[in-house]
Nucleic acid binder design. Sequence first.
DNA 1: GACCAAAATTGGTCGGACCACTATAGTTCG
DNA 2: CGAACTATAGTGGTCCGACCAATTTTGGTC
Lengths: 205, 205
Amino acid sequence: MPPRNAVADRVRILLDERALVPGDRLPSERELAAQLGVSRSSLREGLGRLADLGIIEARRGSGTYLAALDLRDLTDARLRLEPYAARLAAERREPRDLVRLDETLAELRGSLEDRAGFADADLRLHATIAEASRSLPVRVLLDAVADLLRHSRAVTAVDPDTRRATVVVLERLVRAVHAGDGEAAEIAMREHLGHVVAALPREGG
Amino acid sequence: MPPRNAVADRVRILLDERALVPGDRLPSERELAAQLGVSRSSLREGLGRLADLGIIEARRGSGTYLAALDLRDLTDARLRLEPYAARLAAERREPRDLVRLDETLAELRGSLEDRAGFADADLRLHATIAEASRSLPVRVLLDAVADLLRHSRAVTAVDPDTRRATVVVLERLVRAVHAGDGEAAEIAMREHLGHVVAALPREGG
DNA sequence: GACCAAAATTGGTCGGACCACTATAGTTCG
DNA sequence: CGAACTATAGTGGTCCGACCAATTTTGGTC
């Protein structure tokens, strides 16, 4: 997994807590650093990561602002990348990947009534698939996708029934990875993301 | 376009000049900063970007090392993403995108005998497509791809004839974007990348 | 109200200090 | 002589305070 910046994650959480919307201005770097209890240097390292991802935009002399993100575009991009990652994972996975996948699947089954926990386990499953693909580009790109996703709590199914359906598809995906069946894994992932698209909030009519 | 770090680019060039191979150790941060004439803080900002991309790996107490990159994996990932970007570009492009595409195409035609210049213009064309897609995820992801690509001079056709063939396909791509024909743009991009795959150096057999 | 200059605020860069960890060279001991 | 241990120097990671550059706000002037 690419290196992760703890400060970036904390900033993410903070933005989420304050329910900032695109265009909103973040607190100044000095203030944010104070609030998080880290130095401005470390904070800037985290902000830089978010800026590289296009999540925030810094304007010298003015401030740092939250950028807009179209969930449909993000899901469409995932729809192109992740089925490929699933195929690679099925073809290249190693024993430790299968163990992690099984564990994560168990967590998913145990979090059917816990939306946040379910979303968390879902992210972890996707990360494991990326890891198992043994492809640096895939890992880097899907890591960026995950970072973008973390900014939208709206991507997880609201009702438990939908979550149950999700688990069924993911079970099929994991089974395919176990079996080394790249084709089946790719199809399962595509179906899974198709459900994500369907659950997306409507827009513009 | 996502913010870019000038220091990261200079480090990239420096690594390229010294012909470092995966596993090689980079100079220490203090030394590298001195060589580039920037502060260690700024250098670290650039290195952080490269580390996020998985291009380098820092080991505390030991040093920073160049990671390995499988060009085939990278091209396969592009093959999934870029045709989609081309489709979006055809559907969403604005007049200024078309102007830039035409300019870049002209540069390509003029650099048939200049391998480095050709590679440069090629990268710019792909960046313009990403920009024209008007999709933040696509721009972020393809920007990362471009960063990974910049580490491999081996991706450009060696002989002028192949470059000529490349231009023909890219002309078709640009024409499709002009016409707003997403399907044709996607197909053209796929064909273009197919040629890239075919030109990849053989391995392991 | 319009315009302009000064001041405050903000992101960007810098240099230095210290910490945590590693690798290496010396030293000691069996 | 070799192995185990111990300084020691070197490395990336974090922090701090200062200054620079650009912008925004403020206050005055007409």
